[in-house]
Structures are given as structure tokens and as C-alpha cells.
């Protein structure tokens, strides 16, 4: 009887599951709602290739129209990033929360133009002018850090911040003022935030 009972006992599944996770950056979406003339979105795909190590690909589109009494700016384009995140949290086999840090190599292509530029004459007639549209390529690096929490099974929320630096651009006449995916170029280091919702398609990780 004793041996029969033991043979019916089943071990709990302690398999560590990874997954390919699809995320949307809510910060871009909220910006779109408050500024409908400046559509932007960002999608993120990451996959856990090893326990705690994630390969990440990000892509998006952004535009900026900036209107002031003495000029208008328009910049729009697409960008992409690839890199990795490392989860520094010690977890049980069934926990998927993250406190992570990571690195990205990033690039983008965008068009910029300035219109209705007012140069006051101060004595002579004022001048209204515009710049020619320019296509520009940009490359930069990013360091990332943040957290992810699994709200429900395979549904995640999280936030993170990133530091962008070492910006390089192709030749241009007018210094870029806004680069999609990078932001304001007038600072040597650009900071950014992400607010993430995500869904994960799980798979077994190799032990």
C-alpha cells in the first residue's frame, strides 16, 4: 500500500519558462493622445535566450512639430535599436519580475525642416524664410535600466529609463534639433522614459 501511494505522487513542474515578449511603450501613446499632431509609437520585442539574459529589438516612429511666434519646426522619421537586457533579480522558477540593465545600438533616419522663420529687421524690413527639407541619418548608443512586473500570467507592466549618448549624424546643413528615438539634440546626453505593457508567449528555457 505504501509503495502504491508513493508511485502516485507527481513532482511539481519547476521548469523555468522564458518567452518572447511583445511590448508597447505607453509613454509614446500618451504623447500621441495629448499632441495628436505629433504621432509617435514604439514597439519592443524581447526574448529570454538564457536565464536572465534578454535579446531586445525596438522600433518606432516619431515626429515633432514645434510652433512658436518666430518659427515652426517639423521633424519626422523612424528608428530602431538592438541590444540586450540583463535581469539582476534573483527569482524562483515561476517568477518573472525584472530589475534590469542593458545596452542598445540605435539608428534612425529622419527629415527635418523649419518654416516661418522670422528674422527681425531691427531697422530694415523683417525677413520670413524657411530651410530646405533634409534627410539625415543618426546613430547613437543607449544604456537602459528599469523594472518589469508580471501583473497576470504572461501580462507585464513596467517602466524604465535610458541614457542616450555618442550621437553621430550624416552630413547636414542645419544642425538637427530633434531626432526621432533620440530626442532633443541640444543636450550632449539625452534622457528618456518608457512605460511598458507587454504580453509574453512562453517557452521552455534550456537548463
Amino acid at each position: 500500500m505504501l509503495f502504491t501511494g508513493l508511485s502516485g505522487y507527481s513532482q511539481p513542474d519547476t521548469t523555468r519558462y522564458g518567452g518572447i515578449r511583445f511590448s508597447v511603450d505607453l509613454a509614446r501613446g500618451l504623447g500621441w493622445l495629448t499632441k495628436p499632431k505629433q504621432p509617435a509609437y514604439e514597439l519592443i520585442v524581447d526574448a529570454e535566450v538564457k536565464d536572465g539574459l534578454f535579446v531586445v529589438a525596438e522600433g518606432g516612429q516619431a515626429s515633432l512639430t514645434f510652433e512658436k511666434y518666430n518659427y515652426n519646426l517639423a521633424s519626422q522619421g523612424v528608428y530602431g535599436r538592438i541590444g540586450f537586457d540583463k535581469n539582476f533579480l534573483k527569482r524562483a522558477y515561476n517568477e518573472n519580475e525584472m530589475i534590469y540593465g542593458g545596452f542598445r545600438i540605435s539608428g534612425g533616419r529622419f527629415t527635418q525642416q523649419a518654416n516661418n522663420i522670422l528674422i527681425p529687421g531691427n531697422y530694415w524690413d523683417d525677413m520670413i524664410t524657411a530651410t530646405e527639407p533634409e534627410d539625415i541619418y543618426a546613430f547613437w548608443f543607449e544604456f537602459t535600466a528599469g523594472i518589469r512586473a508580471e501583473l497576470f500570467r504572461n501580462f507585464f507592466i513596467g517602466w524604465g529609463f535610458r541614457t542616450r549618448m555618442f550621437l553621430q549624424t550624416s552630413d547636414h546643413q542645419l544642425n538637427p534639433y530633434f531626432i526621432p528615438g533620440y530626442g532633443n539634440t541640444l543636450k550632449s546626453v539625452s534622457m528618456g522614459f518608457q512605460y511598458i505593457i507587454a504580453y509574453r508567449i512562453p517557452y521552455k528555457l534550456k537548463q
Partner: peptide, 11 residues
Amino acid sequence: MNRTIFILPFS
């Protein structure tokens, strides 16, 4: 893991 730790800063 206490998820409040993650959700509060998010909010």
C-alpha cells in the same frame, strides 16, 4: 515577489 514594489513607482 511583492508586486507593489514594481507598480507603485510606475504610478
